[in-house]
Design a binder for these strands. Structure first.
Lengths: 214, 214
DNA sequence: ATTCCTTTTGACCTTTTGGTCAAACCCACG
DNA sequence: CGTGGGTTTGACCAAAAGGTCAAAAGGAAT
């Protein structure tokens, strides 16, 4: 009855401590590459003490992944179909890019999991995630049908936003290696580039009036 | 004196066998997640026999990565600056997407390596890869300066091609989970989408004449 | 067939790793 | 201040994993 719900103050503190440490280690080495000793050292706890809060290495990993999934999909949930279509898309792109800059460890944790076949969250992907994406794809399709956005496959549009933004977190070392050691922060340029990309991709052609097409 | 250069027929056969098996295992589980026993079993060899051809687990991994890097960059090398700019870019995109479809294991092996900080090939990235990208970025910049391509950051353009195409191999399970079990092959749609994306992004605005600008 | 080199393997070794346990420690509350 | 809960740890364990070795098996050229 100790682990998930934090009862005492000390439990809350240590569970947060362990989560932080585990995020560092898991995101840097993957699940198999991380060791419990490493995580314990990173959290400045003894290994048995760590195992007192989480029953197993896998439990820590699962805990991280499930709390992550929530915040990870927040930007997409915000796409509500109320504002200007292009603005909403661009806002989503920018928020997603911000997450890559501000939470690269989370992005890499997720990437590690997916690349290796998503063994722990496969069902989440085909249920919760699929539902959410279906919903947003419908909104986007509506915009396109109304001529407020240039036509394109909405699912692949979403995939492209994911891949482009997460690339700057997940493949961070490659980006820096190619750009050279002198350019420390590629994000401002990335944001400008992605803004241009999706604007040119999605801006509706002028001959179609914004409302009441055909 | 046994491992790298295959002398006898049997050596060639077994080294190929091991490479195949190791590619399967490494790409599915990452370096730390793969075990020598697993690879040996996959190759139908005993573990000591496998270790007879490669001195260590790491040697197999290094061998795979270095042979991979070569073929992996071939599509980019083909971008030579001789043909129509947009055609050359689109050809590159399509070839890269084909590699994701035909060689997803290689893509995932590479992704695993990069996500975890590229510990084995970091120097290759900042030397060989950087040189190649610098060269191609110059070509692309030339096209843009001549008004034959809409202006954009050439480095981020290349990054975007990498991320978009490799996404379909590396995040394959996610793509399938979101699209649903009924749609088995997302590649034709992906190709159409990416063709549209880069055409809209890069097609030069008509007011600029193709040659001798300003 | 003999010989020499290559190939294969069963047995074994060491280190790493995930996890356990009983005992000690701490600390608020009565 | 002492007692009962929560907390911490040193010592330990078993399994997994990377790698070694000597000896057996195979195979091609003489």
């Amino acid at each position: 009855m100790t682990p998930p719900v934090a009862r005492t103050r000390i439990q809350r503190k240590n569970i947060a401590l362990i989560s932080e440490a585990a995020l560092n280690i898991f995101s840097a080495h993957g699940f198999r590459g991380a060791t419990v000793d490493q995580i314990a050292r990173e959290a400045s706890l003894s290994k048995p003490n760590l195992l007192y809060y989480f029953p197993s290495k896998e439990a820590i990993h699962t805990h991280l992944l499930s709390t992550l999934m929530d915040t990870w999909l927040d930007p997409l949930r915000e796409l509500q179909g109320t504002g200007d279509p292009l603005d909403e898309i661009l806002t989503y792109v920018r928020r997603k890019l911000q997450m890559s800059r501000d939470h690269p460890r989370e992005s890499r944790l997720f990437a590690n999991e997916i690349v290796q076949g998503a063994p722990h969250i496969l069902d989440l992907l085909s249920t919760d995630l699929k539902t959410l994406v279906d919903e947003k794809a419908t909104i986007i399709e509506g915009w396109m049908a109304a001529g407020r956005l240039a036509p394109a496959d909405p699912y692949h549009l979403i995939f492209s936003i994911w891949s482009l933004t997460q690339h700057y977190a997940d493949f961070d070392v490659q980006v820096h290696a190619v750009l050279g050691p002198d350019r420390p922060d590629p994000f401002p340029q990335a944001e400008a580039y992605l803004t241009t990309l999706f604007t040119r991709m999605l801006a509706p052609s002028p001959q179609t009036p914004p409302t009441k097409a055909s």
